[in-house]
């Protein structure tokens, strides 16, 4: 591996200073180090969250490039605002809040654009076609879902209003607790639960309309 041949002074000194135990540290302890300007600790944080965050944001915005940009921006903001993080809340909650706010404002931006554009968006076709399965061919920014089913489900998530989409993604994909979701979305747990209920029902309603069967 090239890693071995190109070990440079920085990496060696890292190993000597005992940074390996960073891998077992709690997020909050690690982030304390980040607040002391330890870049290596931040790399560990990024490593822990990059896939989760990307998955979450991708399911929200359903576009690979957009999701990558947003997650990058989220990490950048986490780093820039590291001194604003107070240890009273979970680090994961805080990071998710930043990423989700970016994703939500992106969705809002899109909605505005859609509102002013005269061309109908591809998503609107589905309502016109009625119960027919909408065109769910993978677009350019689409991850290749492994099957039709995956594409149909993602498409159904796309159709959900933003407030339901957020809770469904956070609850059923990211598997965060209702308390965490409430903290992220800044609303009471009861509200989160009722949104989860409604989101799930709407989603299933769409899937039933498209005659998508989940066994």
């Amino acid at each position: 591996m090239s890693e071995n041949t190109s070990i440079n002074a920085v990496q060696v000194s890292d190993i000597e200073s005992g940074s390996l135990d960073e891998l077992t540290m709690s997020d909050e302890t690690l982030f304390y180090r980040v607040q002391q300007d330890d870049v290596r600790a931040f790399e560990v944080i990024v490593g822990r969250y990059r896939t989760r965050l990307y998955n979450c944001v991708y399911r929200m915005v359903h576009n690979t490039e957009c999701a990558e940009d947003l997650v990058q921006e989220a990490f950048l903001r986490v780093y820039r605002n590291r001194h604003n993080y107070k240890a009273i809340s979970n680090l994961s909650t805080w990071i998710y809040t930043i990423a989700l706010n970016l994703a939500r404002s992106e969705l809002r931006k899109r909605k505005r654009r859609q509102f002013f554009s005269l061309n109908a968006s591809p998503h609107e076709n589905s309502s016109r076609e009625g119960i027919d399965l909408p065109d769910m061919n993978a677009g350019p920014g689409d991850h290749l879902e492994q099957n039709e089913l995956g594409r149909a489900i993602q498409h159904a998530i796309d159709q959900l209003p933003e407030k339901y989409k957020s809770v469904i993604v956070l609850r059923d994909i990211e598997e965060l607790s209702y308390e965490e979701i409430g903290e992220i979305l800044r609303c009471p747990t009861g509200t989160v639960k009722s949104r989860v209920n409604r989101g799930r029902l709407r989603l299933q309603e769409m899937l039933r309309q498209w005659q998508v069967e989940i066994l």
Binding site: T64, I153, I173, R200, L203, L207, I214
Partner: peptide
């Protein structure tokens, strides 16, 4: 069924 559907989605990873 909705939960099952959403949970059946594969984990997507960045490029």
């Amino acid at each position: 069924s909705s939960i099952r559907a959403v949970k059946s989605l594969a984990l997507v990873t960045p490029q």
